[in-house]
Structure formats: C-alpha cells, structure tokens
Amino acid sequence: MPVHLIRDGDTPGRIAGRYGIPERWLYKANDYYDFDDMRPGRRIYIPDYEYDYYDYPKQWGRYKYHDGIRFDLRTGRKRFRPGEKVSIIFSYCNLSDVPRRLRYDDACLYDFKCLRGGRDIWRWSEKNRYERGRRSMLLQPGECRTYRGKWDLCDRVGDHVRHGPYILRAYDRSRELRDHYVDTGLEVLKTNDTIIADGDTCSRSNMLINPGLDNWVDSTTPAGWSAQNVNRATLERSGRYAAEMGTRPGNQALLAQIVGAAPGRSYRIAFWAMENVRGQNSKYTLEVSVHSLDQQSSQIGRVDPVFRPDRLPDNAYRQYSFETGALPAGTRGIQLRFVFRPQSSNRTRVRIDDVELTCIS
C-alpha cells in the first residue's frame, strides 16, 4: 500500500484531496490512527480503494526495500481459477529524505511479467506500443506512484496457462530502478475445479456464456470471455453491445471462451462480424479457431482448418458459420478463439456479435 510522509500543514482532508480519495478511507486504512497527532515525519498508509481494514492483511502480495524505496506488489489473493483475471496493483514510495531522479528510455514507465521455471511466458507491455524518446521524472520524498494491470492467465500467444505455480514480477522501467523488481507467487488451479465442469456437453442450445456480448465486467472485458485489445462497442447487431477488436492499432486482439465438450462430438459455430473502417488501409486477418482441451486444460488438438472469413462487409454485419467435425479422444473442453492480426498501417477494426456454439452430433 502506498505511504505518505506527513509534512508541516498536512491535515487528513488535505491528504485525502491530494490523492483523490474520501477522508474516511484514511481512517479505515490506518486502523483509526490518531490524526490529531500529525507530527511531520510520521508516515500513514494511502489506500487504493475502500475496504475493511481487518480483511486487508489477508490480501496476497509482497513488498521489498531498496535504497530508501519501498516496492509493493499485490494481487488480492494467491490462487486463481481458469477463466479468471489477476488484478495487479504495483506501487513504490520514496521513504528517504531526498528526491530521486528517474530516467526512462521511452514512454513505458513500468511493466509486469509472469515466469514459470525461470522462463518469461507473459509480459504486460507486449500488448501496447509506446512513444520513443528519453524522459525523466522526479520522485519527491514521501511521494508514491501506483500502477495497475491485469493478467488473463494466458501466455504470449493467447493459450491458457497450465495449472501450477507461477511468479508474477513488477518493476519500474527507469534506468535507476529496473533491476530492483518485486516478485510474488501465484497458483493456477486445475481446470476441472471450475471451467470444464460436468454437465451437458452436447446441448442443442447455445453453450456459451454471454453469447450476445451484452454484459461486460468493464469496458474491455465481456463477462464470461477472455479478451485482449477489445473494447465494448455500441454499434451492435442486436442487444446492447458488441465486441470491437483491434482498438489499439498495430496490436493483436483476442476474444476467447472455454466450454465443456466431449470426444467424438461435433459442434457448430456461428457469429456475426463487420468491419469498422478507419482510414483507407484494411490490412488484417481474422482467424476463428477451436482448440480441444483435456481435463487439465492442456491443449490436445486444434480443429483444422482454421476458419478465416473472406473480406468482411463495411459497417454492416454478416453471419458466418463452420463445423468442427468429431473432437479427439480425451477432450473435456474446447476453447473458441477469435484472433485479429493487423498488418502495418492498418487502422480498421472488427466487430463481433451474437456468437453461437451448439452440438450437432
């Protein structure tokens, strides 16, 4: 949790206003600290959100100190089920009495990555592009910075990671601090505990959660789906919203969902898609694929060929469909995956709506 160094003239109201939080949060975060004793040089916690103080020590994370700076990495809890997202909060505070000059090589000020067995399998910054050019910032005594990110439990290519232990790492990318990261351990639970559950794996009705993409956790994540470089769009085919892929130009976009499935069964996928044309260059591919998963959520096969619709209509929806054929032995689930791959200079985006997955045999 960020820390504030009390200075002359500080009051709870002024401190809360500086950090943009309600004053009552300060009292709860600091165990109802005696704010009548605001002696300069004392330090108090600055909460990132409202919470029950007595629950806070249970929040999972790690911290470390280096040369007067406290690094803090939190994920809220240690264990995650497949299909969930890890919410990351990374902060660091200058607890020394002198300002610290931080120099950066580009506009990427911080980063998160995940490791397994010492190997880097995911990096937050790879989803974004940054302006080049050197810059510097001054971290004053008592000043803190807080950054947030999310990991959708997928690796670099969009595959869901296997169950087991992982290391999440956070660090500031300045020349002065980039080598002083903070790590915390995470555990991904087995798929059969959650996503691939027993039940009807050959339903004639739609098997997807939130198939119309009308319900959203936030503006970038439709409920029940994994999403990367996706935004909520109001130009829908039906319902309230659609999913727009490719909102950050030049970056790959992913929209995926896992459902239970059975070996030997065949499934039909139907969806509506359109281009949202922005500029003259429409250079991209849209791939729709189905991947077979075993009980441990490991990929054991992919339905071939990958479906690649021909040129999508401009600003009008069209329906597409394909069938999987019989799934391989050992299948306990399938992942339906939409992948948007832009080429250089592309500005066009693709909207997806009203996705249907049904068992046909």
Rank of each mutant, 00 (worst) to 15 (best):
Y171S: 01
Y171V: 03
V157A: 14
S136H: 11
R135G: 14
A170P: 00
R148M: 14
T146H: 10
R156F: 00
G142M: 05
G164W: 07
D172M: 04
V161D: 04
L139Q: 05
S136L: 13
K150V: 13
G164V: 12
L138Y: 12
G164L: 06
R145T: 08
E143P: 00
Y166R: 04
R178M: 13
W151R: 07
V161A: 05
P165I: 10
V157F: 03
H160F: 07
G149C: 11
R156H: 08
K150D: 14
C154Y: 00
D155T: 07
L168Q: 03
R145L: 15
D159M: 14
Y166E: 07
E143K: 01
D152W: 01
Y171I: 02
R169A: 01
E143D: 15
L177H: 00
D159T: 11
D152N: 14
M137N: 13
I167V: 14
R156Y: 02
Y166K: 06
G149H: 04
Y166S: 01
H163D: 15
R173T: 14
G149A: 09
E176K: 10
G142S: 10
K150S: 13
R156A: 09
V157M: 12
C154A: 09
P141M: 05
G142H: 00
P165M: 14
I167M: 02
L139Y: 07
R145K: 15
L153V: 01
D159G: 07
R169K: 13
S174P: 10
Y166D: 00
W151H: 08
L153D: 04
C154N: 09
D155E: 11
T146D: 09
R135Q: 15
R145H: 13
R173E: 07
L139W: 01
R169F: 08
R162E: 15
